[in-house]
């Protein structure tokens, strides 16, 4: 039962980690894309540079969500308490 409890708690922790951890990057990515759209609307000739920078920036922001995912996976598959 104790083992089961820990497993249940691990699954819950992983879900919460991914769910909460992706809120921030989602908001951040939304802001970044909005700002990029705004900039492209203002300066269409800079669209190439802007979108390239946007992709890199999105990847950087996404990394935060990936961190949460890594933690979740650690909890699921490399849990030291299991």
């Amino acid at each position: 039962m104790t083992e089961n409890l820990i497993e249940v708690a691990s699954v819950l922790a992983a879900a919460i980690a991914v769910g909460l951890g992706s809120i921030g990057p989602a908001l951040g990515e939304g802001r970044a894309v909005a700002a990029a759209m705004d900039a492209i609307a203002r300066q269409p000739e800079a669209a190439g540079t802007l979108s390239r920078t946007l992709f890199v920036g999105l990847a950087m922001i996404e990394t935060m969500a990936i961190y949460a995912l890594v933690i979740a996976l650690l909890v699921l598959f490399a849990n030291p308490f299991v």
Partner: peptide, 16 residues
């Protein structure tokens, strides 16, 4: 570490 985890997490999550 950030370098390690960023690359690892991205690629690994994609594969996963």
């Amino acid at each position: 570490f950030s370098l390690i985890v960023r690359l690892f997490g991205n690629v690994m999550s994609g594969v996963f």
